[in-house]
Design a protein around this nucleic acid. Structure first.
Length: 326
DNA sequence: ATTTAGACCTGTCAGC
DNA sequence: TGCTGACAGGTCTAAA
């Protein structure tokens, strides 16, 4: 689900709320969510550590950890890496919320799919430090729960169980992310670097933009939005873009991602911010899931078709198709 | 060497 | 009311 804007937005929320927090306990309710090390070793690595920083790399949310006994100046020794894939979310619960595991005994099938429920949801009036009520659905599909020493809980929820939570030594970060391309919101991402990467690809531009080795952070929503803004048809061969088109596409990618962050991310179903709130960017989307509606530029109806096993949404009139794939 | 289908998972919605 | 199939912010792996 989350693409770069949703991960970045959550990272900023976490940075404002959990720096300095000490992880007092951890519960894993779906072991496969822990990608590294194993579910058992994970707790040993993480419990007792203190959060010293929150970062983002592509669609990965990174939480820097240092031993709780260390001083202010000690450098982090490990980091948590969280990739939410399709339906993962992070929620920060104030003290008083309890994890209810009674389902484990009473209904094995329901426990298998949903995991624990959250007891305090039943008492409604709980309010976050932001002064806003937490909005949770009936079942939150809690997979991993971090309990801080101050009583707050950071829970990782994920109905479809695709997401992964990992812990790595800091010195292995480069190795872990060795296959990732440039950050689109950094100075590394120029029209030239994008053009060079695309020139080596014979596939569709849509598929190339989803490839995290070319540029990180784009998913189905923002790839479609960027191609629309740059007036490039999703079926254009990646290596057929002109220099001018590559430059326009670079700018459109940056603009689409920046706008997404400003709107708190795009929610149409599952994505939520740290306090359960929906992102507002879906109201500003111009082609994604807009098939059948008129193009805002020319009035032609937006089309949807499958490209590289994913839905692509585009305007067949103003997104030019000079050279096709296949 | 690339492409593509399948796997991983569960929920929702449209259509019969 | 139930069933079936299509589809959903992603990525990895195995087969063609």
């Amino acid at each position: 689900m989350p693409e770069l804007p949703e991960v970045e937005y959550t990272a900023r929320q976490l940075r404002d709320s959990v720096i300095g927090a000490e992880i007092g306990d951890i519960q894993v309710f779906w072991e496969r969510t822990i990608g590294h090390p194993g579910a058992q070793d994970f707790a040993a690595e993480v419990v007792g550590k203190r959060i010293s920083g929150v970062r983002r790399r592509g669609k990965f949310l990174l939480i820097d950890l240092l031993p709780a006994t260390s001083t202010e100046t000690t450098a982090a020794t490990d980091f948590l890496s969280i990739h939410r894939r399709m339906t993962g979310n992070l929620l920060l619960l104030p003290p008083g919320w309890e994890i209810d595991t009674s389902l484990r005994e009473s209904d094995a099938a329901a426990w298998h799919t949903r995991g624990p429920t959250l007891l305090a949801r039943l008492t409604a009036a709980l309010v976050t430090e932001r002064g806003q009520p937490i909005k949770l659905s009936d079942t939150e599909y809690c997979r991993v729960c971090f309990t801080f020493s101050d009583g707050r809980r950071l829970i990782y929820t994920d109905p479809r169980k695709f997401g992964r939570v990992e812990c790595w030594p800091l010195q292995r970060e480069d190795e872990v992310f060795a296959n990732l391309g440039p950050e689109p919101l950094s100075n590394d991402f120029t029209a030239g670097t994008l053009a060079n990467a695309l020139a080596r690809r014979k596939t569709s531009i849509k598929q190339a933009l989803l490839d995290q080795t070319i540029v990180v952070g784009l998913g189905n929503i923002y790839a479609d939005e960027a191609l629309f803004a740059a007036r490039i048809h999703p079926l254009r061969r990646a290596d057929s873009l002109t220099q001018a088109e590559s430059a326009a596409l670079r700018d459109s990618i940056v603009a689409a991602l920046t706008l997404g962050i400003e709107h708190g991310g795009t929610s149409f179903s599952d994505y939520r911010g740290l306090w359960g709130e929906a992102g507002e960017n879906y109201n500003h989307v111009r082609v994604y899931q807009q098939d059948g509606k008129p193009c805002i530029r020319c009035g032609t109806l937006i089309e949807r078709r499958v490209i590289a096993q994913r839905s692509a949404h585009f305007c067949p009139t103003c997104q030019t198709l000079a050279v096709t794939v296949g």
